[in-house]
Simulated assay, not measured.
Amino acid sequence: MRAARTQRFRGPTVAAALLVASSAAVPAAADSVGLPAVRSVLGADEPCVAASAEHASGQPWALAALGNTRSLTLSQGAGVTVAVVDTGVGTGVPGLSGRVTALGGAGVDCVGHGTFAAGLIAAAGTADGGAAGLAPRARILAVRGTDERGNASVARVAAGIREAADAGASVVYVGVALAGGKSELTSAVAYASGKDALVVAPLAPDALPKDSATGDLVAPEPWYWPAAAPGVLAVTDYGPDGGRPDNAPSISGADLAAPGDAVVGIGPRGDGHFIGSGASLAAAHTAGAAALVRSRHPEMSATQVSRQLTEAAYPAAPPRLDPYAALTAVLAETPGATPRPAKAVVPAAVSAEPRRRALVVAAAGAGVLLLVAALAVIVPRGRARGWRPAG
């Protein structure tokens, strides 16, 4: 959220700090190079994305960087519904089987981006430790935010956010970043916030469009929507080396950074894997972390969950998502303040009477022992003399 950008928790666990700091040394899976790339938009004449025949094994670098193994010991997202406002989510995908509810025609994903994002949020793990989501017991609410080819519009995204909030989603992931629509999308976010739903969105598009005349990339806008709206958790991305691709849109103002480049996930059909990059995928990881926190701390409001994620993040520019710290950190009551230490409890003054009584008993006991010792010496000598005086 906008108000939380400079109010970061400065005391993450040492393990979490080392984990995030060392993420630059975590390579992508060796067998992920040959995976097909996930798309966000298809041409008018292109067929729907087919199932991938490729599979990546081993834990993806993104899950390792986020410490997912430790987080799952505390929360798996049970009882939380995350809305995915995107290209749709395939309801028959094995990794999400039985946990997807679709509004309208959002149960069919021709493009694959929405299903890929949903997998990063909540896909169940596999026996070989392959692609999985941060919150594997969360439910997914598929909401259409684009047309069937992946083309987004302000009206569709705004309506999708409202529909997600009305359907009871406590986390609303938006997979697109639009250059316009400030009024409509700000209003839609305010509506969702009024229903205690946390909206998570990418800070910028995954890729900038090209100028039709010159072929050059269009310069990025200073802000995009709905990420720039008050109450939205705006997320940017980083890759296995800790940096961002040279051609990635660069704008300031992110609340969090999360793994988003060269990440591995599921496709819209079948059990094969895809690979993708962009801030939209970093936002998906953040939405999964929000589901973990909302599951573990159901008493927290959407605003409190957002603050928990941003202030418990590893301090950097922007701060980096740390789900385990968000699940365990105890923040100060006032945003930006130093967490208060626990009050020292001074015990009441102890009465001296028990001590005096113990000393009396000890003295009496010592006296008895001395008497017994004396008698042990005197009695035998007295008997030997027939109890006559000495001399």
Rank of each mutant, 00 (worst) to 15 (best):
P12L: 10
L18Q: 13
L18G: 14
V20T: 14
A21Y: 11
S23C: 10
A24R: 13
A28T: 08
A28N: 04
A30P: 01
S32A: 15
P36N: 10
L42F: 08
E46C: 09
A51D: 10
W61S: 07
L63Y: 07
A65M: 09
G67L: 04
R70G: 13
Q76F: 06
T81I: 10
V85N: 03
T87V: 04
G92W: 07
V93M: 11
S97F: 13
V100Q: 08
C110L: 07
C110Q: 06
H113D: 03
F116W: 05
L120S: 00
I121S: 03
D128C: 06
I140M: 08
V143C: 11
D147A: 12
G150E: 04
V157S: 05
A158S: 11
G160T: 04
D166S: 05
D166M: 05
V172R: 01
V174S: 09
A177V: 02
A179S: 14
S187K: 14
S187A: 15
S193K: 14
S193M: 12
S193F: 03
V199G: 03
A201N: 10
A204H: 08
A207C: 00
A219N: 12
P220K: 06
A228L: 07
D237H: 11
G239W: 01
P240F: 01
P240N: 09
R244D: 10
S252M: 09
A254K: 00
A257G: 13
A262C: 12
V264C: 05
P268K: 02
R269W: 02
R269D: 08
D271S: 15
G272H: 02
H273V: 04
S277I: 02
S277C: 07
S277R: 05
A287D: 00
G288I: 06
A291G: 05
R296C: 09
H297T: 03
A302F: 01
T303W: 04
V305R: 02
Q308P: 10
E311T: 08
Y314C: 01
A316G: 06
A317S: 14
A317I: 10
P318N: 10
L321I: 06
P323H: 02
Y324H: 12
A329D: 05
R340E: 15
A342Q: 13
S351D: 15
A352D: 08
A358N: 03
V360T: 09
A363N: 10
A364D: 11
A366G: 15
L370T: 15
A374V: 11
A374C: 10
A376H: 03
I378E: 07
I378F: 11
P380Q: 08
R381A: 15
A384E: 13
G386E: 05
G386I: 00
W387S: 08
R388D: 08
R388L: 13
G391H: 11
